[in-house]
Design a protein around this nucleic acid. Structure first.
Length: 522
RNA sequence: CGGGGCGUGGCCCAGUCCGGUUAAGGCGCCUGUUUUGGGAACAGGAGACCGCAGGUUCGAAUCCUGCCGCCCCGACCA
């Protein structure tokens, strides 16, 4: 059957959904493993096939390819603006940290020591036995350096000199950086040995101010996740056992992936005075006293790329929310060369100019070494939200074929007024992606009161809202038994998935003040 | 760190058990022709220290020893 199935109905040009059989044909051509078949395999193939990233030759490390990096750059752009709006400035601290710094804060070293890469020498020399180079034993460092797994220590060591007085506070600094954590097991974007992130490190005169900062940045993350990634999140706090090493309280946003597993998408920590004490950072108060400063740190990483992929994408590939898409609309010319080409290209160029003028990130793919069918498939795999095709028929009839990536609907739209149409469509796609994923999230929060219900719900996937007696022992026991962890204790308030109301622990039956959210997680 | 798998042109891989001409096939790449409204067809062409180092043998991708690396599944973690 002809693949081109859209038609102009009754002189009107709109909304003509493609017959289902067409979608079936397209899906049959998909080269990805389906999500049903093997979700994990689907994910890995998508990352590579959509040209987002690839494995490097070093275990656990990845090359982020230009298209993947463009998406990350969009994330950075939006987040960075939000940080600036909330009064933060960027700076940069070194990659290498003296080993001794790490041990200043007891809980911190406990948390990170096991995954630190260590620099021991500063020189190589030619291998006397043959080819290549060897470490020069004469070039051993007096004090070994670690490659930062996070920067609290070097930053607090520095802050000691920056902060003297209450006038120096608050200190609101962020850095965009790479960090290394030598994880046993890695997955592209979700957990790589080296990853890119931002880490905010702030210093405050009072506890309340620091807590407010940590909470504010969590809200910034949540707004970003929902507004830009179209990924709904649950905001809450971590239990003591899940806290950041060295924090007094860890706030988090938790998202739900399509396979029912939870993903920690961002964290914001209230560090109390732990690092100020460890690095002796004090300030003179207004009334002449001397106090340790209060701290926060907060971060999101390239892991968000994984979250994005597993929130919206389908068996044909990536689905990008328009806010984030490096290319929001792609124009594919269709012609047979010769005279027809000039006519089609003229329309395409006009379309491209018009969309660009309307502030749409548009690409005209005039590469004549690829056929249109190949391009259609490629842009679907890469998640471009809107695809526009213009062929001789469109050039003659004043129409454009428009295909939505999210619903895979095709329609013919008039050339006239198309920029406004697409602008509106992009924002509709953005909000539909959010509402669809929000629906999936709410549909997959199960409230349970018995152990049997609890385990059954966990096996179905999603978040399980249950009472917990508040002890580390019970939390650990449940983790061992079910592989589920307490993802967070959600904030109370309207729409909370687990309201504050007394009950009995799902495991021990001991009294519980409120429900918490359990899930199996990435 | 345990369990499993794998290393052969840019990519996917056959061949390895049972050693024997020129290392097969597909994708991709290059050239040409015809094509172009859903991943084009045909013809020709280029491209390989068979992971590395030893060993056995007349002869090794194949057998032996050692080493290295990666991926997947667990434990650990953002």
């Amino acid at each position: 059957m002809p693949i081109f199935a859209a038609a102009i109905i009754g002189g009107l040009h709109f909304a003509n959904t493609v017959p289902k059989i067409l979608n079936a044909e397209i899906i049959a051509m998909a080269k990805l493993t389906s999500r049903d078949q093997d979700y994990s395999k689907w994910y890995n193939e998508l990352v590579v096939d959509a040209d987002l990233a690839q494995h490097s030759d070093v275990k656990g490390c990845m090359v982020i390819k230009p298209y993947g990096f463009a998406i990350w750059e969009r994330m950075k752009e939006v987040l960075d603006a939000k940080f600036k709006e909330t009064g933060h400035v960027n700076a940069y601290f070194p990659l290498l940290i003296p080993k001794s710094y790490l041990s200043r804060e007891a809980a911190h070293v406990e948390g990170f020591a096991k995954e630190c890469a260590v620099v021991t020498h500063y020189r190589l020399k030619n291998d006397p036995d043959g080819a290549g180079v060897v470490v020069d034993p004469d070039a051993k460092l007096e004090e070994e350096l670690i490659i930062r797994p996070t920067s609290e220590t070097i930053i607090w060591k520095t802050y000691k000199n920056w902060i003297q007085s209450y006038r120096d506070l608050p200190l609101l600094v962020n850095q965009w950086a790479n960090v290394v954590r030598w994880e046993m097991r890695t997955r592209l974007f979700l957990r790589t040995t080296e990853f890119l992130w931002q880490e905010g490190h702030t210093a405050h005169a009072t506890k309340d101010e620091a807590v407010a900062e940590a909470e504010q940045m969590l809200r910034v993350y949540a707004e970003f996740a929902e507004g830009t990634l179209a990924m709904p999140v649950i905001q809450g706090v971590k239990t003591a056992s899940e806290r950041f090493a060295g924090a007094l309280n860890t706030y988090c946003i938790e998202a739900l992936m399509q396979d029912g597993k939870a993903l920690q998408a961002g964290t914001s920590h209230f560090l109390g005075q732990n690092f100020a004490r460890a690095f002796d950072v004090t300030f003179a108060t207004k009334d002449g006293g001397k106090e340790h400063v209060w701290a926060t740190s907060w971060g999101v990483s390239t892991r968000l790329m994984g979250a994005l992929i597993m929130t919206h994408s389908d068996d044909l590939g990536l689905v990008l929310p328009p806010e984030l898409a490096p290319i929001q609309a792609v124009i594919v010319p269709i012609h047979k060369g010769g005279e027809g080409e000039a006519v089609v290209m003229e329309r395409c160029n006009a379309l491209c100019d018009e969309l660009r003028a309307a502030g749409i990130r548009v690409k005209l793919d005039d590469d004549d070494t690829r056929r249109s069918g190949w391009k259609f498939a490629q842009y679907e795999l890469q998640g471009v939200p809107v695809r526009l095709a213009i062929g001789p028929r469109d050039a003659a009839g004043g129409t454009v074929e428009l295909a939505r990536r999210d619903t895979r609907e095709k329609s013919l739209v008039p050339f006239e007024g198309i920029a406004a149409h697409i602008t509106a469509l992009l924002s509709e796609i953005q909000s539909q992606l959010l509402s669809a994923s929000r629906q999936r999230l709410t549909d997959n929060i199960t409230e349970v009161d018995t152990w049997d219900e609890f385990t059954a719900a966990l096996d179905r996937g999603g978040f399980v809202s249950a009472h917990w007696d508040g002890t580390d022992e019970t939390e650990e026991w449940i983790k061992q038994k079910t592989k589920a962890t307490i993802r967070c204790i959600p904030f109370d308030g309207p729409g909370t998935p687990s309201p504050v109301a007394p009950g009995a622990c799902v495991k021990t039956g001991a009294p519980s003040e409120r429900r918490v959210l359990f899930a199996r997680a990435y």
